[in-house]
Amino acid sequence: MSMLIEDFMGRILLDLPDDALRRLEHLKERRKLPRAALLREAVEQYLDRQNQDVVQNALGLWGDNAEDGLEYERKLREEW
């Protein structure tokens, strides 16, 4: 027996300032997409960015550090 799996979408009610609605309307006209599609895209991008921020924050001070961790540890031990 095969089952069909459907993607279900929930609905939300969203209040936006008039300026944001105007800007969204301009974007809708420029990109020729429905407003709902633009909002879905914006939410997906926001959520992806939040996930990336979590990963970067998890790396702490080592995130942008090019120094080798083992070498750093050796330098610290030399101070003892």
Rank of each mutant, 00 (worst) to 15 (best):
1 M>I: 10
1 M>F: 12
2 S>Q: 03
3 M>Y: 11
4 L>K: 14
4 L>Y: 11
5 I>Y: 05
5 I>D: 06
5 I>G: 04
6 E>C: 03
7 D>P: 05
7 D>K: 15
8 F>H: 14
8 F>Q: 14
9 M>A: 15
10 G>T: 08
11 R>E: 15
11 R>I: 14
12 I>P: 02
12 I>W: 09
13 L>Q: 05
13 L>W: 04
13 L>K: 11
13 L>N: 13
14 L>V: 15
14 L>C: 13
14 L>F: 06
16 L>D: 09
17 P>F: 11
17 P>C: 02
18 D>I: 03
18 D>F: 06
18 D>A: 03
19 D>M: 07
20 A>S: 15
20 A>F: 13
20 A>N: 12
20 A>K: 14
21 L>E: 03
21 L>D: 00
21 L>N: 03
21 L>T: 02
21 L>G: 00
22 R>V: 09
22 R>Q: 11
22 R>I: 03
23 R>S: 04
23 R>Y: 10
23 R>L: 09
23 R>M: 07
23 R>Q: 14
24 L>I: 07
24 L>T: 04
24 L>E: 03
24 L>G: 00
25 E>T: 09
26 H>Q: 07
28 K>M: 02
28 K>G: 01
29 E>W: 01
30 R>G: 01
31 R>L: 09
31 R>Y: 06
31 R>Q: 10
31 R>N: 02
31 R>T: 13
33 L>D: 00
34 P>F: 01
34 P>S: 12
34 P>G: 08
34 P>H: 08
34 P>E: 10
35 R>H: 07
35 R>M: 12
35 R>Q: 14
37 A>M: 07
38 L>A: 01
38 L>I: 13
38 L>M: 02
39 L>N: 00
39 L>M: 11
39 L>E: 02
39 L>P: 03
41 E>K: 06
42 A>D: 04
42 A>H: 12
42 A>C: 05
43 V>M: 11
43 V>D: 04
43 V>G: 03
44 E>S: 08
45 Q>R: 15
45 Q>H: 09
45 Q>E: 04
48 D>S: 11
48 D>W: 09
48 D>R: 08
48 D>H: 11
49 R>N: 10
49 R>G: 00
51 N>I: 02
51 N>A: 15
51 N>Q: 15
52 Q>A: 13
52 Q>I: 06
53 D>Y: 07
53 D>A: 07
54 V>R: 10
54 V>C: 05
55 V>Q: 07
56 Q>A: 10
56 Q>I: 13
56 Q>Y: 11
56 Q>S: 01
56 Q>V: 01
56 Q>C: 01
57 N>M: 09
59 L>N: 05
59 L>A: 08
60 G>E: 07
60 G>L: 03
61 L>H: 05
62 W>I: 03
63 G>C: 12
63 G>K: 07
64 D>E: 11
64 D>Q: 12
64 D>V: 01
65 N>H: 10
66 A>M: 09
67 E>S: 00
67 E>W: 08
67 E>H: 05
67 E>K: 10
67 E>G: 00
68 D>I: 10
68 D>A: 03
68 D>Y: 07
68 D>S: 06
68 D>F: 05
70 L>D: 03
70 L>T: 04
70 L>M: 06
71 E>K: 12
72 Y>E: 08
72 Y>A: 05
72 Y>V: 05
73 E>N: 04
75 K>A: 12
75 K>N: 08
75 K>C: 08
75 K>P: 00
75 K>M: 14
76 L>S: 07
77 R>V: 08
77 R>I: 11
78 E>T: 13
79 E>I: 14
79 E>K: 09
79 E>Y: 11
